[in-house]
Design a protein around this nucleic acid. Sequence first.
RNA 1: GCCCCCAUCGUCUAGAGGACUAGGACUCAGGCCUUUCAAGCCUGCAACAGGGGUUCGAAUCCCCUUGGGGGUACCA
Length: 510
Amino acid sequence: MTNNREGPARVRFAPSPTGHLHLGGLRTALFDWLWARKTNGQFILRIEDTDRRRFDPDSLESLKKGLRWLGLDWDEGPDIGGPFAPYVQSERRKIYQEKAQELVERGRAYRCYCTAERLATMREEQRRAGKGTGYDRRCRALSDDERRRYEAEGKPSVIRFAVPLEGVTVFNDLLRGDIEVENRQLQDEVLLKADGLPTYHLAAMVDDNLMEITHVLRGEEWLATAPIHKLIVDAFGWDMPVLVHLPVILDPSGKGKMSKRKKMVAGKEFLALVHEFQDSGYLPDAMFNFLTNVGWNFDPDQEVFSREEAIERFSLDEINPSAAALPYEKLDWLNGLYLRALTPSALKSALLPFLSQQLGLSETELKSDRRLDVLIPVVQERIKRLDEAVSWIDWAFLKSDEISYSDPKLLIGRKLDARQSVEMLRAAANVLQGVEPFCAEAIHAAFRERAEALGVKAGSFFGPVRGAISGKKVSPPLFESIEAVGREETLQRIGLAVAFLEEHSALEGG
RNA sequence: GCCCCCAUCGUCUAGAGGACUAGGACUCAGGCCUUUCAAGCCUGCAACAGGGGUUCGAAUCCCCUUGGGGGUACCA
């Protein structure tokens, strides 16, 4: 494939540090990384911090954390450096100033002295006249005298690119082919701002060239300005990198680009930021798998695959150019799959931070808690996210005097009344006193035997016990639960349940 | 408004003129299994936006319409 270009690729992920990384950005980085690894090339992290107003000092760390979380390691970038350092644009301002000046001298750009106020009123008038907005190129026509006078007055200025007034510009997008735009539709974009920092249009083109970037993957929102970029690159006499505009990620409603702002869809708040997914207990491997398959498809008959397999098969020209909403439910399903594939001890370590926080116990305390060793394997196939585990096992960490039964129904067995249920609980206590060893398997066998002897269905016999020890209608498998809390504690709880039930059935006149 | 992009089940997608009675996955519904809930297995519901062409033949190519998205900053 000619457009994929042979040989190692140099691709860059170039976020601007204006806030937390969201899933759209992460997906772009992922595709960058996949392509770099696929071609044995380099994945470069470049920070585009040329907007001083929107700069957020915390976001750089957040950005890096998000990339590391997904396992996207970069070969060149801030703090690790590289042959084209620095990788932070604010540290490269001199380069941009020189390049902008170069274009001015060659007549491809010009200084513009228009104030923000004038621009604003101009736009307002254009709007009122029902015309398209855009710079009217007033300063492009300045005479040398006027220019000298403004400079002498020390008037602040920007440098604007001088777009050819006629003709068409053609650029190529790998996914969409050649795209033609009439030059008269284009603006004389600002290249260098009054504060001496470049705009994206200049900075990205300069750096991509200097850093020898071969493929540019970026969001589709850049498609409209791509002709400008082509013109700028041409003006410098450089080659255009391969352009791949990735489809935007839509919010779950399928309407509108997903943004960092919280939005409610169908009465539910949905996650958008990388750290939110982290905090909710999604596994990086699951996220990697998930994200790889939106906008690109590994294999129509294989949903689950490894990083290595993804690298092996990934190809830029197979990317689907149409916008996509994230299938969140599929992510949950996938995460559950990855969760279940973990070894119990790996799951335990993954769970520790969540349980520690939610249970209010220290991680060291939990690490040696044998209740977890019994419970984790059975919780494993019941959760889709790490943060769901606690609600399955919190009851086991209650002291017996903290146990409470919200409703007597909880303790009533299938097709039984309160009196019969009390009998079941007493029988269970009796069984438990004698079971040896006190493990799930032995308890299970003994319970079955007793149920049969009593002539009741297993469900009728087990139900009240489940309610007694967990205080819940739905809980992990009973015998593991019993093993986890231990003989003594189980008997305690059964005793409490009996008392509760007797009191309530008495009140009901039973 | 103007410019650009996109268009297959609810969602993510396979499909590059005949292999399409349009395939897979998630969700949903039903069933099996079962100590609750899950997990697992099986079955089912469900799509080529519309209209014109081109062609022996169109989900696939072209045009129009419609719909959706993006852009229209001294933001990226």
